[in-house]
Design a protein around this nucleic acid. Structure first.
Lengths: 117, 117
DNA sequence: TTGATATTTCAACATTATTTGAAGTATGTC
DNA sequence: GACATACTTCAAATAATGTTGAAATATCAA
């Protein structure tokens, strides 16, 4: 994860349509969702959906698997976590106590911050 | 934090220049940095820097304080943490065990994941 | 008050992103 | 094979963003 990767990822999440696609896919987890169902759920014309899915694929925020005529899309949650890591990295590295204080006051759900290992 | 806020924030972080500005400001913490020094550090013409700082201000990712002729810019770290919260929310809410498993394998620095209270 | 410094705003232009309908590709069904 | 379905690619129009130099604003220093 570097500036370039992060830029592409943020770019991919910077449109309401794409952010909603990603959030929807997170919700469906490993099962994923077929392009047509994403289009229906979010009321986006198929052509336009393809365009946005391409941006998410390019950022690697989603993966796709063809099964018959259907394209199954899935969210790449580990990558999302890597971006979070990237964002917090510098903060923690440069002023750990301040970062921790801010984090304690943040809206991040507590169960997410359980000790790793 | 809703889709609209998040979109504006991701939009603000979706250009390499703006991402570098933000990272630089995170590094300087509470002290902040004056516009001219950001311009020098990142080798961005002042006019262009102003344009990008405006986007970061609009997203509220940075704040600004005028002191004499100087404009001191500072990163809004709590907001950054709020976005992280927003991104993890749905994941944790919908499949907590999967989310935790992914997190354990993620590159997020371990000290960031200490129990909150 | 004059001139220098710090930064922003403006206007023009250049570049990039988004949307749409029509056409294309591939798979499945009869 | 002929036709329907699922989805993508293409091309053209439109919209949004990014960049630059010149001018504006505001503070400071002599």
């Amino acid at each position: 994860m570097n500036t370039n990767d992060a830029t592409i990822i943020f770019e991919a999440l910077s449109s309401p349509i794409r952010l909603n696609i990603f959030k929807l896919l997170v919700k469906y987890g490993d099962e994923g969702l077929v392009a047509g169902d994403i289009a229906t759920a979010l009321d986006v014309p198929p052509t336009n959906l393809s365009f946005h899915l391409k941006a998410l694929l390019h950022a690697k925020l989603v993966s796709v698997e063809q099964i018959g005529r259907f394209m199954w899309y899935r969210a790449n949650i580990p990558l999302m976590l890597a971006v979070i890591g990237y964002m917090t990295e510098e903060c923690c590295a440069n002023q750990p106590e301040k970062c921790l204080a801010y984090r304690k006051a943040s809206a991040v759900p507590p169960e997410f911050f359980e000790k790793k290992n």
